[in-house]
Amino acid sequence: MKKTPFATKPPAKKARAAANKAARPKKPQPLDAIVGADGLARPPWAAVDPLLKHYYDTEWGMPVRDEHGLFERLSLEAFQSGLSWATILRKRDAFREAFAGFDPDAVAAFDDKDVERLMADERIIRNRAKILATITNAVATIRLREEGGLPALIWSFQPHATPAPRTIADIPTTSAESIALSKALRKRGFVFVGPTTMHALMEATGIVDTHLVDSHRRGSSGVWPRE
């Protein structure tokens, strides 16, 4: 049979090619803090991209104790699930505009027209389940005011000690506290609040300090000592 210029590889060849690709040694990823040209040590994820570097230097790990701030970060962590945080950061201004500045009262009032508006907005992550989750969580945030509010609940899960990681491999992705927080939020009607997502929220909002020990940001939140 004469081959055409666009003939594809037979299944056996495709399988061998995939196996060979998988067998190739992967480039090792850096695990330790990286000292930048400015002389400051940062984790690998925040050492190169200017946007991530600025976020790490000025915001990540600093305490967030207000309802609005925690609702926004809870929402963005949910949208980040399965994606890179850099993707979310680049779209954050658009998210804020699309979701009424992440005002829980405004978002809780979103209806079907708002959902379709958001699904048509190419500037944000157009995931219907995550959009609906944000609205659901806004309603739950308002309801939680009767129990003292979202900040009080989230910060009640602050642990007695924080990790002291020397490499990226030392940083946990869940904890007993993030598991308990996830259960507490789900009990109150929140969704997209799994233990890993809640651990990331706790890291980002200063509830735990997972800055590498050698990082220039270690202990900068005022919540935990540098050690």
Rank of each mutant, 00 (worst) to 15 (best):
M1A: 15
K3A: 15
P5E: 06
A7D: 14
P11Y: 02
K14S: 14
R16C: 09
A17Y: 00
A18L: 12
R24Y: 02
K27V: 13
L31E: 13
I34G: 02
V35I: 09
G36R: 13
A37R: 12
L40G: 00
A47T: 00
H54S: 14
E59D: 07
W60I: 06
E67G: 03
H68L: 15
R73S: 11
S75Q: 01
E77G: 02
R90F: 05
R92I: 07
D93K: 15
R96E: 14
D105Q: 14
A106Q: 14
A108R: 02
D111F: 02
D121V: 03
D121H: 01
K130P: 04
L132F: 03
A133H: 11
I135E: 07
R145Q: 11
I154Y: 03
W155F: 02
S156H: 05
P165R: 00
P165D: 03
R166A: 10
S175W: 02
S178F: 14
A180N: 03
L181M: 09
L185F: 05
L185R: 03
K187G: 11
R188M: 08
V193I: 10
G194C: 06
T196Y: 06
T197Q: 08
M202W: 00
E203C: 02
R218G: 01
S221H: 15
W224V: 04
